[in-house]
């Protein structure tokens, strides 16, 4: 496992978010992630984990607090938001592949449109990435023809094709059949060995134990506990964490 540097990639301070219906999803959540670090966020459903990481690439807005991603302060400035999204890749629970495009075109769409790179060059890179996640032979197929696990691996390759410095995973294995979870986790584990910074919302305890540098527990819109995996799972300092662990272990 590579060691994270001291450079801060994500710095979220006291983030508060209300939905239009008045519900407060985040109540002063804070988190810092260093370069190359793999952080796993756990927590009961409705605790705001997904909302929290979705604020990191401005898919959700927030009303109070501050978020800095790769040195860019997230604000209402649209140029900032676009800049951040170019640096931050995201993998969704429901894959969200583009069903009208082939696997290869799913990968090349954004680099060609957003980074204005020549199509041939991007395709070469896309082939390499598909090779890496083990589905190069499916490049000409459409997402609807792939299994869930294959789709999620394509989604990871698609995010990587933009060469992001940070990858966010929003419950990447929750929508998968059990036998497909492993193939996706293996791909993620391989990624973690690289320099890339990862923030992963997941319920996969094994992954958290063996891959994460740090595990975070969120509850009621706040970060409750932050610790190295060993400590988190064996000797957490908060009552809330123990209750949560009792339920899932």
């Amino acid at each position: 496992m590579s060691q994270p540097s001291n450079e801060l990639m994500i710095e979220a301070r006291g983030v508060e978010k209300w939905y239009p219906n008045g519900f407060q999803a985040l109540r002063g959540a804070s988190l810092t992630v260093r370069r190359g670090e793999v952080v796993v966020i756990m927590g009961p459903s409705g605790s705001g984990k997904s909302t929290f990481i979705r604020t990191f690439n401005a898919l959700e807005d927030f009303q109070k607090g501050s978020i800095t991603v790769d040195g860019i302060v997230l604000s209402d400035d649209l140029r900032n938001i676009d800049a951040v999204r170019r640096e931050v890749g995201m993998v969704f629970q429901q894959f969200n592949l583009f069903p009208h495009l082939s696997v290869l075109d799913n990968l090349t769409l954004a680099p060609v449109l957003v980074r204005k790179r020549p199509k041939a060059e991007v395709e070469q890179q896309a082939w390499a990435l598909l090779e890496r996640v083990g589905i190069a032979e499916q490049a000409g197929k459409f997402p609807g023809q792939l299994s869930g696990g294959q789709q999620q691996r394509v989604a990871i390759a698609r995010a990587l094709c933009m060469e992001p410095r940070i990858l966010l995973f929003d419950e990447p294995t929750s929508a998968l059949d059990p036998e497909m979870v492993r193939e996706v986790l293996e791909v993620m584990q391989n990624l973690a060995a690289d320099d890339i910074t990862m923030v992963v919302v997941t319920h996969e305890v094994k992954f958290a134990r063996h891959v994460a540098h740090r595990v975070v527990l969120m509850a009621e819109g706040e970060v409750v506990e932050e610790a190295e995996p060993e400590v988190f799972f064996t000797n957490p300092s908060h009552q809330r964490t123990r209750r949560f662990l009792d339920q899932i272990l």
Partner: peptide, 11 residues
């Protein structure tokens, strides 16, 4: 999710 995926890729 389609719009979100596209936006998160920087489109």
């Amino acid at each position: 999710g389609q719009l979100e995926a596209a936006r998160s890729l920087g489109l």
